[in-house]
Every structure is written in structure tokens, then in C-alpha cells.
Design a protein around this nucleic acid. Structure first.
Lengths: 146, 146
DNA sequence: TTCAATTCCTACGAATTTAGTGGGAAATGA
DNA sequence: TCATTTCCCACTAAATTCGTAGGAATTGAA
């Protein structure tokens, strides 16, 4: 029931981009240093996020990455799905007609309902939290600090 | 974000025991066949459940496993925790004073709040569903069938 | 034009976790 | 006595995770 480092680092990187949104592209190196993530590892994650259209990139000097949409329009669920695949406790939930003994009759499978409920509770949180939510929360904490 | 086969099979086995609760010990072989799980693999899972006190066992002929408590008093969360460890998206949530850069100040960590919310939504489902809930649901589905 | 900065791409590898298998000892009821 | 059944321990093959390494392509600025 864990989020791997792909998801964790990916969310951290995207959160970092959200905090600096609007001020041009940010170099991978900068994000990696701020978030204390291996540069070459993060590079792979950013490649996935770029291919999924969540960030845009600019090569060469003064290049870097930027959010492709405003923080308001990027959910944590999107990020996780790109980096970790479908948000589901069991693969059988992803198919209507599974192959396992318990997927033959999904409608009548009690355990499927259980896992579905778990899945729903997870996506409820992840799909309803945006980078903007996190940014505002960060601001609130910072103010409370003083 | 997946439940491994340990958790999946374990819940299935416990659900099986719940369906047959009250009629004496049930042999591992029987559960394994009904649930289509490898016998020796399931044996390891049952050992863990026994050591955790969720089932009792009886050796020898006519031996087998039984729920240690009534289905009403066994939650899915308990089963999962025994077989998969703490229900947490990130290990850092398990410690008050983590070691990572983002765990130095848990109270001020925005991302920690996010993962905590996810964790809460997961435990909300798993800790509030009992084997009895599943048993009743199974009964309802069976009736609706006719 | 040159050059440093930076993304892009591919391949490899070590460590860990997952999902089992196998063999035999101990206990129990008939 | 014996078939049944749990108990216990060691092993392993495959997949996944978490990276590292090296170099090609692009870009902006001096």
C-alpha cells in the first residue's frame, strides 16, 4: 500500500514547479537540489511527466521545466497515474471482465466491492487535491510561522 | 498503491473462514482449494495470522484453522496490517521524527499532510469493514441472485 | 562562432520485494 | 498404528525498485 519514490519524488518536483510557477523554466538541477533528489533519477521522472503533457521543457542554456497548466488544473492523481500507473489496490479492478476466479462475476464478487471502495476513497483524495491547494496550504503554514 | 497477494489472499482466506464460522476448524487444504491459492504459500500467511492472534489452529486429523474472534470483531485493516505491515502510503508517516529532509518538521510539511489525508481515507475504509460486513453483503448478493 | 548549460535518450545494474516451492518434524484423532 | 494436518525452516526464480553512466542534441550568451 505504498507510494514508491517515483510518485513521491514526482509530486515533490511538481510541487516545486508550482511554487515557482510563472517565472520561466526551471532547470532540473535546481529542482533536484532543492528537493534533494538524484538528478539523473529525477530526469527520468520528468521525461514521463513531459510525455504525459503535465510539464513543458526547454532545452539549452536558461532552459528547464515548467508546469504545462496552472497549479489549479493539476491534480495529484494525475501525477501519480503518470508515474505509478493506475491508482488501484488490485489490478482486477481495472478490467470489467477479469481472468481470475474472482473476476468472472465482478457484480457478484463481495471482495471486489471492498477493494473498489478502497480505490474510491483513495482517488477521492488524490483527484481532488491540486497543486494550487498545496501551494496555498504552504503559504498558510508560512504565515502561521511568523 | 497495490495490495500484494499476501493481503489479497489473506483477506480471501479470512473471508472464507468467516463464511464457515462456527462449524469447527477448517483445514488449510480446504481453504486453499476453495480460494484457489497455493497451499504452501497460504500456509505462511496463516502462520502470520495465527501468531498475530487472528486465527486459532488445531493440529492433527480433523484439525484446521478457525477465526479467533467472531466475524463482527475482525476488520480488514487488522488482516492487512498483519500481512503487509502498516497501512501507510509513505514510511515517514509512521515516525514522528523522520530522518528525511521533509520529515524534520512534520508539522510544517505540506506534503506530509497530503499523504496523511490519503492514509486516513484508506484506514477509514479498511478499519471500518469487518468480516461480518462482507458476510452479510455476500448473503444479500446471493438472495438477489434468485 | 564558440562554449557552457541544459534537455533528451538509451542502456545497464544492484538491491529489494514478491510469490512462491520443498522437505521434514510434531501433533492428533480414529 | 497411521493417515491427516499443522508447524517450521530454508531456498529460489522473477519482477520491481531505485537508481547510475555516457553521450547526443539543442539553445542562449559572450
Amino acid at each position: 500500500m505504498r507510494v514508491s519514490t517515483r510518485g513521491e519524488y514526482g509530486v515533490r518536483a511538481m510541487f516545486d514547479l508550482a511554487l515557482h510557477f510563472g517565472s520561466g523554466p526551471i532547470a532540473l538541477k535546481t529542482i533536484a537540489e532543492r528537493q534533494r533528489i538524484s538528478e539523473s533519477y529525477l530526469e527520468q521522472l520528468m521525461a514521463a511527466l513531459r510525455k504525459a503533457g503535465l510539464v513543458t521543457s526547454k532545452r539549452g542554456a536558461q532552459g528547464g521545466y515548467e508546469l504545462a497548466a496552472t497549479p489549479t488544473n493539476v491534480t495529484i492523481g494525475e501525477i501519480i497515474r503518470v508515474l505509478e500507473g493506475p491508482i488501484t489496490p488490485l489490478d482486477c479492478l481495472e478490467t470489467d471482465t477479469g481472468t481470475g476466479p474472482y473476476c468472472q462475476a465482478p457484480d457478484r464478487c463481495v471482495l471486489r466491492s471492498l477493494w473498489k471502495e478502497l480505490q474510491d476513497s483513495m482517488t477521492q483524495v488524490l483527484d481532488n487535491t491540486t497543486l494550487e491547494d498545496l501551494r496555498q496550504e504552504a503559504y498558510r503554514l508560512e504565515v502561521a510561522e511568523q
